[in-house]
Every structure is written in C-alpha cells, then in structure tokens.
Amino acid sequence: MKKGLIVIIVIVAVIAIIGFIVGPGFYNTSIDLKENATAQWGNVESSYQRRADLIPNIVNTAKGYAQFEQETLLKVTEARSKATSIQIDPSNITPEQLQQFQQAQQGLTSALSRLLAVFERYPDLKANENFKELINELERTENRINVERNRFNEAARPFNKHIQKFPNNIINMFVGKFSEIDYFKANEGSEKAPEVEFDFSN
C-alpha cells in the first residue's frame, strides 16, 4: 500500500515537473497554431461569401431570358439562403458544425450546377456580356474556394499534430483546453473544384 502510494506521488511529481517546464511553451505554441487555422477559416468564409454574393446577380440577369425556369431559379435562391444561414465560431469549430456547413455548401454547388445546365439552352442569355463576366467570376471563385479549403487543412494539421505529440498530449489531457480541428473532407466526386465552365461558343 505504502509502495503504491509512493509510485503515485512520483508519477504526479513527474507530470507536474513536465507541466511546469513544457506547459507555457505548449500553451503559447498551441495558441499561435490555432490562431493560424482560425485566420485561414476567415479566408474560407470570405470565398464562400463571394460566391453567395454573385448568385443574386446571376439569377436576376437570367430571369429576363429564362422566364420558364422559375423553379430552378427558386431552388438556387433557397440553397443560397440555407448555405449563408450557417454560422461557425472559428475559435471552436466542431466536426458536426463543419459537416453541416459542408453539406449546405454542397447543396448550393449542386443547385448551381443544375442551373448552369439549364442555361445552356438559352443562346441569348449566353451572349449577354454581363452574364459571361458573372459566370467567369463564379468559376474563379470556385477555384478560390478549393484553394482556401486546402490551405485551411494545411493550417489545421500542425496544430493537431502539436497537441497529439508527447508530452503535449499529457499536458493537454490535464488542461483540457485544446481539441483537434476537423478537416475539410472532399465530398464524393469533388476532389477538385466544381466545374462551372460555360460554353459561350454557340
């Protein structure tokens, strides 16, 4: 009994010493790495917001040409509303929040793809210079979204590795302050940026 108590005291003492020596450095580095990931999340949101801002202009431009496609236009508007309604606290991104965010954005991507497929049937709309520029800007934005998502994953990775390594994982277990940041995961068939290229040659 006495021997077991001594072992426990030694273990606690070792942990305390490790925490005293490594703790401040662990905490400060964790803060810095998490802040990097949080800042990059802002770039992700900004890119998605740029896409959301483009959609009303695309829809309004198309209305005058594709007056028989109101249901398709409405679905895009509804998908945009759902996607922009999901707000995430960048300092506390949970896997559940990120999954919900991704699903809403993927829903908007799918609605946009269907909308562009419909617009292919309207040569007068495709000839509209304003519409051309909006679609080109949408394509650039989709590419930017893909870039910023990858950069977010790259920013989250060193933070996750930092809090998992020994003795950081022991310290964090007692502190209980830092949780791993979930990564963006590609939806099936979306390993690259969505195709929004429009054929204006016809």
Rank of each mutant, 00 (worst) to 15 (best):
M1C: 04
I8T: 12
I8E: 09
V10M: 06
V10L: 09
A13Q: 00
V14T: 00
I15T: 07
I17C: 04
F20Y: 07
F20R: 09
I21R: 01
I21C: 07
S30A: 14
D32H: 06
E35G: 14
E35P: 13
N36G: 02
A37Y: 11
A39H: 06
A39Q: 10
W41D: 14
N43W: 00
E45C: 00
S47P: 14
Q49F: 04
A52M: 08
D53F: 01
D53A: 05
I55Y: 02
N57G: 01
N57W: 09
V59Y: 12
V59F: 13
Q67Y: 00
Q67W: 02
Q70C: 05
Q70S: 15
E71L: 06
E71D: 07
T72Q: 10
T72H: 07
L73D: 06
L74R: 08
L74Y: 05
K75T: 07
K75D: 09
K75L: 07
V76C: 06
T77E: 12
E78K: 01
E78A: 11
A79W: 10
R80W: 03
A83D: 12
A83T: 06
I88V: 15
I88Y: 04
D89N: 15
N92L: 04
Q99C: 05
Q100L: 02
Q100V: 02
F101S: 02
A104T: 13
A104R: 11
G107D: 12
S110C: 04
A111V: 05
R114D: 05
A117V: 14
V118C: 03
N130K: 15
L134I: 07
I135R: 14
N136Y: 07
E137A: 11
L138G: 14
E139R: 15
R140L: 15
E142S: 14
I145W: 04
N146I: 00
E148D: 08
N150Q: 15
N150E: 15
F152Q: 08
N153K: 03
A156W: 12
P158M: 07
N160I: 01
K161G: 07
H162E: 05
Q164A: 11
F166Q: 11
N168W: 06
N169V: 12
N169W: 00
I171P: 06
I171R: 07
I171K: 05
F174G: 13
S179Q: 07
S179T: 01
I181V: 11
Y183E: 05
E191V: 08
K192H: 01
K192P: 00
P194K: 13
F198R: 01
F198L: 14
F198V: 14
F200K: 13
